[in-house]
């Protein structure tokens, strides 16, 4: 697979992974798991692609777009780090660490998109004054998608033209302690995703449930699906108990 093809596909994937027609759709199309799978097919190594993708996905589990702000862009991180890692064979942990600056840059790319959307909003004001329903529809669905294509495709296309070589050069020429350090960081960084979720839902009164989940795995080595079954049961029990009290109180 030559660089140009990979660069074009990466640019397209980034556009598809960030275009916002369909609420919640880009959560799937932009998921590093999905990008990892597709790049894995291209490089004939689906397993590694999925593993790198999932490792990047873990960083972004807890990201919530409060007020429409994208604080961190999982798709940009994936569309640059995954092809670079698959092309050069750098380790998963180092790939995860390398992906992070791009995830942060993605926040700026989205700011550009939302700024250009002002044009279409004001155009829609004009259409509303003329009762042009079709015009409003184009402003809401078509025009922003077209501008988004250029904003998303071009930078990722350009970076991926040189990406794999640059990543390989970087990793080959870094001193050992830097790559070891990046590897360690790759293991620690998913902690950010979990910390964000704790920040959102980890109220003191229910925080022990977090520790129960944590140590069920550490002491008993339970798998994720097993944990999910127990988790749903516990949540249901607590919900039923609280709604029973709710009725008794007559609130």
């Amino acid at each position: 697979m030559n660089n140009l093809t990979i660069a074009i596909i990466s640019g397209l994937l980034y556009f598809i992974g960030t275009q916002r027609v369909g609420y919640g759709l880009s959560t799937a199309t932009g998921s590093p798991i999905v990008s990892g799978f597709i790049f894995g097919l291209l490089y004939n190594d689906v397993e590694t692609g999925l593993i790198i993708g999932a490792s990047i996905q873990l960083l972004y589990l807890g990201v919530v777009f409060t007020g429409g702000n994208v604080p961190n862009d999982q798709s940009l991180a994936a569309c640059i780090a995954i092809p670079a890692a698959l092309a050069t064979g750098i380790s998963v942990d180092v790939a995860v660490a390398l992906s992070i600056p791009f995830g942060l840059l993605g926040a700026f790319v989205d700011q550009i998109r939302r700024t250009t959307n002002l044009i279409w909003l004001h155009k829609a004001d004009e259409y509303a004054a003329k009762c042009d329903i079709k015009g409003i529809e184009r402003c809401a669905l078509v025009y922003p998608t077209i501008t988004a294509f250029f904003i998303r495709f071009i930078p990722v296309f350009l970076v991926n033209l040189v990406g794999p070589e640059a990543a390989k050069f970087l990793v080959d020429n870094l001193p050992a302690w830097v790559t070891t350090g990046l590897g360690v960081a790759g293991g620690v960084l998913p902690a950010i995703g979990f910390a964000i979720i704790l920040l959102q839902i980890g109220r003191k009164e229910i925080l022990p449930f977090y520790f129960i989940g944590y140590f069920l795995v550490k002491y008993l080595n339970l798998g994720t699906m097993a944990i999910a079954v127990f988790g749903v049961c516990i949540a249901l029990l607590i919900y039923y108990k609280s709604t029973m009290e709710h009725r008794k109180d007559g609130v």
Binding site: G213, L222, T224
Partner: peptide, 16 residues
């Protein structure tokens, strides 16, 4: 509350 409990429980397991 119930959803948050499920969420915390799962996140505990996954972070482990």
């Amino acid at each position: 509350d119930a959803a948050s409990i499920l969420g915390l429980f799962m996140m505990g397991a996954l972070s482990a």
